[in-house]
Design a protein around this nucleic acid. Structure first.
Lengths: 305, 305
DNA sequence: CTTTGCAAG
DNA sequence: CTTGTAAAG
């Protein structure tokens, strides 16, 4: 296997956003993802494309055509969260996804239908590990880590703090342990963290910051947990590229027609080891893709040869 | 109020079976209900029409158009079983059923979504009672009794003996107590018992008698319970009129496409006090009506003035 | 196979 | 509002 990036492949169907964006009021509540930048600032083309999607139940998501969207997007690596399904109950249609032949699954033990993550790859990883190495955190199928020759990819579904924040103390323990886990990986190879981090970092990252100060996903505790990842050197790839773009969300509750009104939250991220800054081409929010209460996000990296 | 029968009303839409039945092999697994006989053997026209239907969840049944079928059938009294709904959660569409303005509901206490019966009437009953007067049996919302000037109508959902027959002992206690209840009513006025009695009486009353000898609904114990009602003088109105007609069922499990293959059971009955024999015009099985795993049945009586 | 209610998000 | 589950039929 080559060092850096992935073996070359034919490029096709990675973007359907050819039409020019219609002009809109600056304060529009809607958001249109700009066309993909396929090269770095220095002009190097991307050679790794990663998609992450909280599918909110992989069985329902497959029925709603999620796999067809993935085939058109054609990422090199696909990270899934909230599969809500053990490896046994997975839909057979997944076998027909020949684009991503190497498939790995994690699920909660003794809790069918809860949590669960997936990591699918075009090329075979050197190895794949489950969890973060701490029993308290590894029974819920929340983390898969794939090691490739020159980087790690982590698919993560961070615990929700729950109604009434009853699980916020646990979430704080998680945040600390997960950060330690990521930093340990980072001492070996650069890390691409993908997934539903279950936090909106700043006010710009959700529609209603004021009324959600004590809601799961926007407490100071959770925001500080995210901040600590950035302080430790990780980059929020979307905000690095679009530091002031508002209304860019990846989750909308099913309640109250929130999605059509774009009353959303940015909960899904690609966080990168700082030394991947120069490899970053683009970090996209695919808000038109339906099938879950989250939309997919896609990362384009130009890794060194 | 008049004694005997109900006040006259305009006749309309009570039957859509105008076409002549197609000829079929004698041993056909299918069943076609013959046209309604609207008069007694002596030529007296019916003046009471009662429909009974185990709706298997009234909320889903209403969504599937159950009420439209009822409006076309236009009975004087409608008995419903397995509403699976307390009086609070009933669909609003029921209010628009002006055909049957007097509505009564029974539901299980402390067990939302379980059991439940309804009794709806065109004319106002003298009174309506819940249950059969025994605490052990009256917590599950299984019986409503409406008293009219010259008869009682009972809407009943008899307890299922359960997988593994684990509730058969309870069922036997129920059968005894329910029989006593009906016989006590019968000493006052003739009784029309409608509902899901959760037993196929004889081999002719289900598709697969051999393999169901120890299945809930066809154990000797349950069949004997039914037999005891007949011994006590009640009439199985359908079998009185059609003593040897096979393949006449009112329930088909949702599993294995049982309904389209007519792999069914006759579990829903109109049982009549013996002295109503002369009033019996017809007892129909409306197997074309969809919306539940049971179909409705309709009784036509010509009560004395 | 389908309806419920429930936990979870 | 939607996904799972379980109990019940």
């Amino acid at each position: 296997r080559k060092a850096g990036g992935m073996p070359k492949r034919s490029k096709k169907g990675e973007d359907g956003d050819g039409a020019a964006p219609k002009s809109r009021r600056e304060d529009s509540a809607l958001y249109e993802d700009p066309p993909v930048r396929e090269e770095t600032a220095e002009g190097r083309p991307y050679n790794l494309k990663v998609t992450s999607w909280n599918v909110d139940g992989i069985r329902a998501w497959v029925k709603k055509g999620g796999l067809k969207w993935i085939e058109a997007e054609a990422p090199d690596v696909l990270c899934l969260q909230e599969t809500k399904c053990g490896a046994e109950g997975l839909p057979a249609e997944l076998n027909q996804l020949q684009l991503l032949p190497h498939k790995f699954w994690g699920s909660a033990v003794g809790r069918p239908g809860y949590s669960g993550v997936g990591l699918l790859s075009r090329t075979e990883p050197l190895r794949v590990t489950h969890g973060i190495g701490i029993d308290e955190h590894d029974a819920e199928g929340r983390v898969l880590t794939a090691e490739f020759p020159s980087f790690y990819i982590v698919s993560a579904y961070v615990p929700n703090s729950g109604r009434g924040l009853n699980r916020l103390p646990y979430r704080q323990r998680w945040d600390r342990a997960f950060r330690d886990f990521l930093l340990a990986l980072d001492t070996q190879k650069p890390v691409v963290l993908c997934g539903d981090l279950n936090v909106a970092h700043q006010e710009i990252d959700l529609k209603n910051p004021k009324s959600n100060r004590r809601s799961a996903g926007f407490t100071q505790e959770e925001r500080d947990g995210f901040g600590a990842l950035l302080d430790a050197g990780f980059l929020d790839s979307f905000r690095v590229l679009y530091p002031t773009v508002p209304h860019a969300y990846t989750f909308w509750t099913y309640m109250g027609a929130a999605r059509e009104r774009n009353v959303g939250w940015r909960l899904d991220y690609f966080l990168l080891s700082g030394r991947l800054r120069g490899a970053l081409c683009d970090s996209k929010i695919r808000s038109a893709a339906m099938g879950s209460d989250h939309c997919p996000i896609t990362l384009y990296l130009a890794l060194e040869a």
